[in-house]
Design a protein around this nucleic acid. Sequence first.
RNA 1: GGCCUCGUAGCUCAGUGGAUAGAGCAGCAGCCUUCUAAGCUGCGGGUCAUAGGUUCGAAUCCUAUCGGGGUCACCA
Length: 594
Amino acid sequence: MMIEQILIGKTKEAVKALYQLDATPAQIQLQNTRKEFAGDITLVVFPFTKVSRKSPEATATEIGGYLQANLAEVESFNVIKGFLNLSIRKEYWLGFLTENYGTEKFGFQKTIESQPIVIEFSSPNTNKPLHLGHIRNNLLGFSLSRILQAAGKNVVKVNLVNDRGIHICKSMLAWQKWGNSETPESGGLKGDKLVGKYYVIFDKYFKDEIAAMVSEGVNPDEAAKKAPLILEAQQLLQKWEAGDEEVIGLWKKMNGWVYDGFEKTYKTLGIEFDKTYYESQTYLLGKVLVEEGVQKGVYTRRADGSVWIDLSAEGLDEKLLLRSDGTSVYMTQDLGTATQRHKEYDPEQLIYVVGNEQDYHFQVLKVVLKHLGCAWSDSIYHLSYGMVELPAGKMKSREGTVVDADDLMQEMFDTSEAMARELGKIESFDDEEAKNLYRTIGLGALKYFILKVDPKKNMMFNPAESVDFNGNTGPFIQYTYARIKSVLRKATEANFELAIHPSVSILAEEKELLKKIHDFPATLTQAAEMHSPAIIANYAFELASEYNRFYHELTILKEENLPSRGLRLCLSELTAKVISNSLWLLGIEVPERM
RNA sequence: GGCCUCGUAGCUCAGUGGAUAGAGCAGCAGCCUUCUAAGCUGCGGGUCAUAGGUUCGAAUCCUAUCGGGGUCACCA
């Protein structure tokens, strides 16, 4: 059992015995002792001073005395103000290390067979290539699914591709008009890039039309609705909905190109899904529900046929659920897919990784479902992540300031290659190993750079900083791993024993590293509860830093005291595992050499 | 304007009501004949936006103000 659990139990016992208090979990506050004080774990005793009716110091001393007398693990304690600093016996730490240094998945929970957690992320539109914003979404979704999995959850990763609607019709129309039958092969363009190109072409001619109309005195709003191109695109959409064979054929062809392109991007990025849904197959699902709501009288149909829900009682406003022409809006579709997922998986939690510009939408979605009588709407969790901004400001596709996902990754690979060559790191590498290394490090840098920031916050993506491989970066952590593996390889060659001798003493540097490793299981639990890969990222950095300090201060292979050498090798071994596992949780690979 | 959200070192970010608020980058000064220097050590750098309040204790909770962002479509 981890020492925290033991201490919580014993502290509860202590305050019961001393003050007849049944302590709540919130009252028992344990934290790691700050480095400037003696001790390992600190109990904050302020919550008990009311019942003890004594000073914080006296209370801490009493509790400390009780714990020392009744727990073999507590060696000694000191008191500073209301902080009870406990020193834990060496035997506990050695026992912990002995038990775990050989455990591949130290800190991971066994998967419990129960209701799954369904997590939707990525959810791209098929009219343009993936960009930096999608990358944050994908990395967060993928990492969170691994974190939840490691925390013992049964996780299903789903993608909902927005493959229909006016946007794809715009690309289709432009391709028909100006495409000259260009294909990805003939144009030498990745499929998603090709379709995106025609989306841009549409927009250009559409703007020209509007400008022409405005110069003839039409007001801009009117022009945007009446321009011939947009009317034609709408016609295309109507034909699509009517199942027109030619239109469907073109739609399938162009979407096929996009999927090929997306697949490459996902593959390079290392993202995969358990199931992919297509909006063309789900967009009608919500209509039935809305009708049901009208029947129940929780939604109201207006004279023009449109359906609304009045949420003013919840402090929200009136919301449209079905257009007057009977077609679905975004909300209708989400009602449908949420219900579908509920039926299909009966999930413990239904997570949506979607940007914070949709906070209001999800708030409404939950309430609207509740009105329908779906108690499970409480299981919806919107992982609302902040926007990615560039030094130049917001990304705007129309202004060409979008950072393309493929380009960005390629840039990372190129930079890591240049850096590796400059540092002379790859002299003993063959071509393939070198190429893999560039890929691993480039992606490590990119992923870490994005994931280390709290998902909820907006973040600044500074390209110059993202290709920095020193300091608090992915490559720094990967380097630490490679360094450890190098030591371990040499230890194996020399037939050095990885073993803990009970007599070995623990030096300060070893202790700090060991305590950091010891924190991992609790960190994982916290990251899962808070839905935050950033917690894992920051932990991995701290662990790597701690190891580098240890590595610098102490010798390992040349240590002549065998118990000490064994201890350091075991520490190295477990650190490597925890770094590798932490990075795995972030979707980042580790190189054996770099 | 209503609602939501953020404001911490020059920059990018940690900091779940607890001790003297921490990292990285950038700057300066050191450390490779020794296990990988993509590393390590040291120095400088703060009105935690502002003003009140709650609390034994506030960067953290509450209120107001200022500033940034988002959102209020028969778009998604």
